[in-house]
Amino acid sequence: MTQISPQKVVSITYNLSVTDENGEKRLVESAEEDAPMVFLFGMSGLPEEFENQLSGKQAGDSFSFSLTPEQAYGDYDQQAVVEIPKQVFEIDGQIDADMLQEGNYLPMADNEGNHMQGKVVSIGNEVVQMDFNHPLAGMVMHFDGNVADVRDATPEEMDHGHVHGDGGHDH
């Protein structure tokens, strides 16, 4: 059987829980058999320690591990919560009220053109407060799951740096 290693396409099912402020585990995400998580090992953009925990496993293997904030998306950074002038969100002089709502994640770019996702925290008369922390920053994450499939990546997948076809990118 094929083991998880670089240049392999990996399909997993899992439950992701985080430890909340009361020390309780809270389920925040699942990938089920009908819609597994599929990624190109070594090129996924996932935390390095996440991939390290899966390395060497093969289809049918189960896994259970936890990642600290340092191993995953870092500590919550209060400086990543910023106020942005409300007019930045205008398109043709109008604000899309469906888009600009508290809790929505919006694609943004900084002054250097770096793309990021920001969560709308609050909307004032003049400014919008945005949080650019990763949604799982500062959290201990607990993964429990199974390896559904491992296969060789195609040359095209390696060139593009992502999975094509089922569970991947179509273009």
Rank of each mutant, 00 (worst) to 15 (best):
I4L: 08
S5T: 13
S5V: 02
Q7T: 11
V9F: 07
V10A: 12
S11L: 06
I12K: 08
Y14P: 01
V18G: 01
T19R: 06
T19Y: 00
E21G: 04
N22L: 09
R26W: 00
V28Y: 02
V28N: 00
E29Y: 04
S30G: 05
A31F: 11
E33C: 00
D34Q: 13
A35F: 11
M37H: 13
V38Q: 09
L40E: 06
L40H: 08
G42R: 06
S44C: 09
E49G: 00
E49I: 12
F50N: 02
F50V: 02
E51M: 07
L54C: 06
L54H: 01
G56L: 05
K57P: 01
F65Q: 06
L67F: 01
T68E: 04
E70Y: 04
Q71T: 08
A72T: 05
Y73Q: 05
Y73S: 07
G74A: 07
G74T: 05
Q79T: 15
E83L: 10
I84D: 03
K86L: 15
Q87K: 10
Q87N: 14
F89C: 08
I91E: 12
G93I: 05
G93A: 10
Q94Y: 09
I95H: 04
D96R: 03
D98W: 05
D98L: 13
M99R: 13
Q101T: 13
Q101E: 12
Q101M: 12
E102Y: 03
N104H: 15
L106Q: 04
P107Y: 07
N111H: 11
E112A: 13
E112W: 10
N114D: 13
N114P: 00
V121Q: 09
V121K: 10
I123C: 11
I123L: 12
N125D: 15
E126M: 12
Q129C: 10
Q129N: 08
Q129G: 01
M130D: 02
M130H: 03
F132Y: 15
N133L: 04
N133Q: 08
P135Q: 12
P135G: 12
A137T: 03
A137V: 03
A137E: 02
G138K: 01
V140A: 06
H142M: 04
F143T: 06
F143K: 05
N146G: 07
V147L: 09
R151A: 09
P155Q: 13
P155R: 10
E156C: 00
D159Y: 08
H160V: 11
G161T: 05
G165T: 08
G167N: 03
G167Y: 00
H169I: 07
